[in-house]
Nucleic acid binder design. Structure first.
Lengths: 315, 315
DNA sequence: CAGTTTCATAACTTCGAGATATATAATGTC
DNA sequence: GACATTATATATCTCGAAGTTATGAAACTG
């Protein structure tokens, strides 16, 4: 005996609201419709579901049990509506975001924390990689969005790139480092210190090489390499070693850890940090929200960086 | 966003059976029907519920969550079918049975225990009373069935009476009572012992009076009255008092407690024990089952009584 | 025993779920 | 990489059921 779950819902509504009229109203249906559904259900079941004749309509034993099941259906129904609503408004869902390790650890993860204050039910899956792997994952749908520095001209046709911050690298060191006392740092002075190198396959490593070439420091000693940001920061703040980091990372971290940037131009890479998504794939609402949030956060970050730099000029 | 619970069921079936075809089969529907329902659901929701293109069909985050709700609906649906089936076959339900105290305690309650061995989910509500109240409750639907001794001619039109045992009362006493040693008991001998009287408004009390009148014992001492069967039995088996009980009660109890019946005819009341139900009201399946069970039990009891009596004749 | 409320019935319309037949897409195989 | 196979989507039709309004019949109210 297969019963229509909607009929069970209706039965539950009648029982819970104490009458056909009230039940119909609660369900947004007409009273005759509900009445007929009930009588159909009763013929179907082959037994009365309500005490006959009694005016404050009272369910039979069987009616009460089926109404219990109807309540379960109603609950699942409501839960479904809720799930869908939360999904469509971007309050729930899964966002798989990839990016270069330093940026993810240094900037994005803090933004994720802020985002999840507002959207606690959006789950974020983070993964690390560089341009080649990340675009691959983007194309095969393994991740939804990538944050990485890229030359705008090299962006493939099938991907959309939205720049959010100009590429700006700096030489970073611990606060109180001997070089921070100098107003102008010369290449010779820099050459005295050893370097913390990012992984050899990272764009940042290329940046480091180019920066050193630019300032004329041909050979340099590497004292530590292969670490992710947490290790780099530890070594950096506990030694006199130098490294190259995106300025945004130094800026974000400067209040939490004792690192700073040297006043030495090392030449901008011709890349811009940006958000990359697949054109074909349309974003789920949570992703759209997250992307907007990240973009807005970077705008705010830009402004704060600009303000800090003009403040420093006046000092 | 209101979703049809049936659609959620279908979604759950697809997810659980790993495909449209399998899901359709499990639901007993055609594949196109299920396919269209799914695509409708997706347009309704406004988001894909399955990963596009993947062959071992895999739900999206949202699809999986909605499928969970669908499973809940499916569960309620199955539970409902189960409830109805059990109800219709009389394996579940509520039976409200009333009767005269002595019969209920002495005979029926043991039958209820046996019945519930087979039908553990049939709930039995027992209530006590005499003819007037019981027929009243039967008429207003407070109880479903009554077991009581009645003159067949006095049965009202709107009630149906099914006799199950001829009325036969006996004088009961403890086993080993002095009177049990006599082959023939005279009224004089009886007059020496005091009586345990049933409640004054009970038919059994009338029977007691008539019996004593019949055997010529005009005045008699009452040593205990007002007790229900458990008390009566206690007093009876712990003293030399006598009482009048239906033979069926003595027969049922004789192996558990030390009571027996005297070999003295006291004249049959012109009543028969039977089952009374309201004609208008149609019985729920559990009641029908219970009634049949009780009737069958009494048939068996009749046979056992007859057998015991013929055995005694030969002794 | 009115008046009011609540439920049942009637007649009709519309929408959707079911079916079969068939096209299209994905997957496995040689 | 082409082909066979299986799985899913689409087209078209039919029928049932759920919705509507209008109205009749009970059952509580005072």
């Amino acid at each position: 005996m297969k019963l229509d779950p909607r009929h069970l819902e209706i039965l539950a509504a009648i029982v819970d609201h104490g009458g056909l009229t009230e039940g119909a109203e609660a369900l947004g249906k007409s009273q005759p419709s509900v009445s007929r559904t009930l009588s159909q259900l009763e013929t179907r079941v082959g037994a009365p579901l309500f005490q006959p004749g009694r005016r404050p309509l009272q369910p039979t034993e069987l009616g009460a049990m089926l109404a219990d099941q109807g309540r379960a259906v109603l609950k699942a129904s409501r839960a479904s509506s809720d799930i869908v609503d939360r999904y469509l408004t971007g309050h729930a869902g899964l966002v798989r975001v990839g990016g270069t390790p330093i940026f993810m650890d240094g900037v994005i993860s803090a933004m994720i924390a802020m985002f999840q204050q507002q959207m606690p039910d959006v789950r974020v899956d983070q993964s690390y990689g560089y341009a080649a792997e990340l675009t691959g994952k983007l194309r095969n749908g393994t991740i939804d969005m990538v944050i990485l520095p890229l030359q705008q001209e090299t962006v493939p046709e099938d991907l959309a790139f939205q720049p959010i911050l100009p590429g700006l690298n700096v030489i970073a060191c611990r606060t109180g480092h001997p070089l921070t006392r100098k107003k102008l740092v010369t290449p010779d002075e820099i050459a005295r210190y050893s370097w913390i190198a990012p992984p050899a396959d990272s764009p940042l490593y290329q940046d480091l090489r180019r920066a050193l070439t630019n300032i004329g420091a041909e050979d340099f000693r590497i004292s530590f390499s292969g670490g992710s940001l947490a290790s780099v920061i530890e070594v950096l703040s506990g030694s006199d070693s130098l490294t190259v980091l995106p300025y945004s990372v130094v800026f974000m971290m400067r209040e939490k850890v004792a690192i700073t940037a040297l006043s030495l131009e090392i030449g901008h890479p011709d890349r811009a940090l940006g958000v990359l998504v697949a054109r074909a794939r349309d974003e789920i609402p949570a992703l759209r929200r997250f992307r907007s949030f990240v973009v807005a956060q970077f705008e705010s970050l830009s402004r704060r960086i600009a303000k800090q730099q003009s403040d420093r000029l006046w000092r």
